[in-house]
Amino acid sequence: MTPPTFKARRPATYTGIPGWIYAVAAAGALLVVLPLVGMVARVNWARFIPLVTSESSLAALGLSLRTSAASTVLCIVLGVPLALVLARGSFRGQRVLRSLVLLPLVLPPVVGGIALLYTFGRQGLLGRTLEVAGIQIAFSTTAVVLAQTFVALPFLVVSLEGALRTAGPKYEAVAATLGASPSTVLRRVTLPLVLPGLASGAVLSFARSLGEFGATLTFAGSLQGVTRTLPLEIYLQRETDAEAAVALSLVLVAVAVAVVALAYRGSGMVGREITTTTAPARGGDVR
């Protein structure tokens, strides 16, 4: 024990966390970690490679990665303007719009699936019009992407709106007084400023898309290579081959862990960069 070193390393940080908080925190962490351990303990390692590289598994994994990437792009394209409007705009019904956009966060995915079905389905609100135009969404990969975008969009909007509010509008205001057009301000000032928030929002959307199950099952169906994503494949395998389901679950956990780790590292790095570049400007007090 060398208390002086300890003190020297963390001189003025107040760590006034009561001891019992650690006990409850440990219980909370266990609640999340223990089931994962339980699942890993059930993996049949001898069969693991053949199980996860079977034709149906690879088809499901490939489809999941492709659709999640597509829905992440859609989330960025649609979510960035939404977040900007919510964070910077001021108009009637803004609060209502925010609540509505965030609704998929709290909605059970099955409900989302039913809602999508009665909107884009053959008998749905837009279905007839789409059919006349020769577009059929139900039972197609498009339906999977649509379902994933529906549930993942709020993650991007929430992250980005938070980042926009934290950054504040003052740099944008300065750029505008210097003669930059709104589009230039957006491209040269706003977006670089909130890039970490956008990145972590995009990664979260990707992760949420990857795990999407309920809305896809209800809305898109389940056919190998077309609509049967990895979660649906796991759900189906469980009927006959529990070991295959566990092995595939582990793959999904590994991908999810990698994605979350990437999000933390990525946003951390970009975050530091932004702080250093903006620090002098703050010191210079342009106002």
């Binding site: 009665y118 039972f139 099952l217 209800t218 389940s222 190998q224 009927e239």
Partner: peptide, 17 residues
């Protein structure tokens, strides 16, 4: 589509999909 339960099959039929 190859659903994992009868209920899901029935849902796709009753909704007209």
């Amino acid at each position: 589509s190859e659903e994992s339960s009868v209920t899901d099959v029935l849902g796709k039929v009753s909704s007209g999909e």
